[in-house]
Structure formats: C-alpha cells, structure tokens
Simulated assay, not measured.
Amino acid sequence: MVQIKTPEQIAKMREAGLVVAAVHAATREAAVPGATTKDLDDVARKVIAEHGAKSNFLGYGGFPATICTSVNEVVVHGIPDEKTVLKDGDIISIDAGAIIDGWHGDAAYTAFVGTGHAPELIELSRVTEESMWAGLAAMKQGNRLVDISRAIETYIRRQPKPGGGKYGIVEDYGGHGIGTEMHMDPHLLNYVERRRGKGPKLVPGFCLAIEPMVSLGTPRTEVLEDDWTVITTDGTWSSHWEHSVALTEEGPIVLTAPDCGKAKLAEYGVTVAPDPLG
C-alpha cells in the first residue's frame, strides 16, 4: 500500500525536510580533516534538537546514532564513532533524517574532506548527484515508479567513467516511500529490473525518498559484523545522494532542498510547486 498524503501532511513533511537541510548545512561545515564522525553526529543531534524535531535514525532497528556517516568504501549506514577520524582526501556520505509531528524527512549528500581529491572522485559524486536529480525530474503525474528508476540508470550509464569501465549502481539498496514512517512502500530501484514490472502510477500525494548509490567498481555490497555498515565488496569508493520529494497537483516539491528543488529541476524543464510553507 502506498500512503497518499494531503497538502497539509505534505506541509508537515516540508517542515521536517527543512530540518534535514539544516543538518546537512551544519555537518558539511564540520566535515573537516581531524574531525571524527562522532563529532558530526553531535552537530546533527544539536541541530535537530534546536528545531524541536526528533531523529528518525536514532534507535531505528537499534541504530545507535543520529546520522549515518559513510566514509570512502562505505556505501551506507556507517555508524559515527570516535575512532573514525576524517583525513584530507576522504569522501563522506552523510545521511540524515528528522521527524516533525510524526512526519518524516530523509536526505543524504556526499562531501569532500579537505582538498586535492582525484578527478574520478569528483566525477563520481557529480554523476551520483545528477542521477538523483534526473530521478526527481521524472516525478510527474502519469509516470510510473519504473520511470524514475529508468531516469536514474540512464543518466549513470551515459556518463563516461574516468579511466574506463562502468560505474557500479548498488543493487541491494534503493529509494523508498516516506511519510508517517521513514521507510515505506514502494521500494525504488536505481535501475530497471524487468521482472518487477512498471510499479504504481505517480499521483498527487505520492512521496518518495530518491537515493542513488554508485561506486567506482562493483555494484555488490556486504554488511560488516556490526550489522549496519555496508561496504563495496571490492573496496572501491562510493557516493550516495538523496532527497525526499512530494508530488502535488501543481508539480513536485523537493521537500529536503532549501529552494524546493527549483533551480536544479529547472535544468530539466520541470517547474516545482509552490513551497507549502510560503
């Protein structure tokens, strides 16, 4: 069952989304050489509290932290700790969420720690982020879920990988519905799998978290002994980008983007709906 939201409920999700955007801004500034991933978690915890929100990660299935901090070959679900110290040249994907009055927001981004990153890492993050926006641009009435998957995969497959070969589109994780829970139906693949069919039609009130995860090598992953941390099986570095989005009668709203996604979606010829918070 796909949970369809009213305009009032979408407005609450926008409130939660703006808290997530504030967490992103604060952690991006704090992700510097010498900082620990626990330092970033402390920053996120403070921002969420200051906004009168709750973390939807802390305690989720026993997860022990406020955000996920996934460094280098860690794809998703990295647990913040005091032992992991960020170094110049690292990349880190930070996944954060917040709850306002029972409604959830969820988004992730990849940051560069320090300077001097290899061009292939800069391109990896760019390709992952842009594939997310291609997926967000497919959030249109009349489309189906598979159209989002196709848009993401098509964008990635068309990008030449520095040094040759192909990018790995992570197979075991994807996007999801979001609303009164962080993870809801439907599951959203970042590639087209024919046997799954076309999926549901996109209608007003449909809300998704769209989140491609891409590696420099394999699409395959494994989970470490902590039962959370997901790494690439070949040790290649990866990038993760995510936004929560709602479809309305007037178009999409990127709930976790400060400008509702207006600037980026304009590049795809998509006009976003007005911000429900004015």
Rank of each mutant, 00 (worst) to 15 (best):
V245F: 02
S238A: 15
T236F: 00
F206E: 08
V223L: 04
T236D: 00
G235E: 03
E242T: 02
G217L: 12
S238E: 04
T232R: 01
V192M: 12
K201P: 06
V203C: 08
G199L: 07
S239H: 02
L216D: 10
D234T: 02
E222N: 13
T232G: 03
L202Y: 12
R195H: 11
R195D: 09
T233F: 04
V223Y: 07
W241S: 02
D227H: 13
E211Q: 10
L188N: 02
E225P: 05
A209V: 14
S244V: 00
H240T: 07
D234W: 00
G217R: 06
P200T: 10
E242L: 05
P200A: 06
Y191M: 15
K201Y: 13
W241N: 01
V192Q: 09
G205K: 06
F206Y: 15
E242K: 00
K201M: 13
H243A: 03
T233S: 06
L188G: 04
H243S: 03
H240E: 07
L189V: 04
W228D: 08
I231Q: 04
H243W: 03
T236C: 00
V192A: 11
W228Q: 08
V245P: 06
T218R: 03
H243Q: 13
F206G: 09
V230W: 02
K198Y: 09
M213I: 09
E222Y: 15
T221I: 14
G217A: 12
N190R: 03
E225Q: 07
G199R: 02
H243G: 00
V214F: 02
E242H: 03
L202M: 12
L208H: 10
L216G: 09
P200I: 09
C207P: 03
L216C: 12
R194Q: 13
V214Q: 05
E222W: 14
V230A: 02
L208M: 14
T229V: 05
N190L: 02
E193N: 08
H240P: 00
S238C: 12
W228L: 07
L208F: 13
E242G: 01
D226Y: 08
K201W: 08
E211P: 01
V230N: 01
R220W: 14
N190V: 01
L202E: 11
V192N: 09
T229I: 05
S239C: 04
R220Q: 13
T221P: 05
I231N: 04
G197R: 08
T236M: 01
T229L: 06
V203W: 06
P200V: 12
E193L: 11
I210N: 05
S239Q: 01
V192D: 09
T232I: 02
S215E: 10
K198E: 13
G205A: 12
K198F: 11
L202C: 11
R196K: 15
L202K: 07
E242P: 01
L188Y: 05
T221E: 08
P200K: 06
I231P: 01
P200W: 08
W241Q: 00
R196T: 14
D226M: 09
E211K: 04
T233V: 15
K201E: 15
T236S: 14
L216F: 12
V203R: 11
R195E: 14
P204G: 13
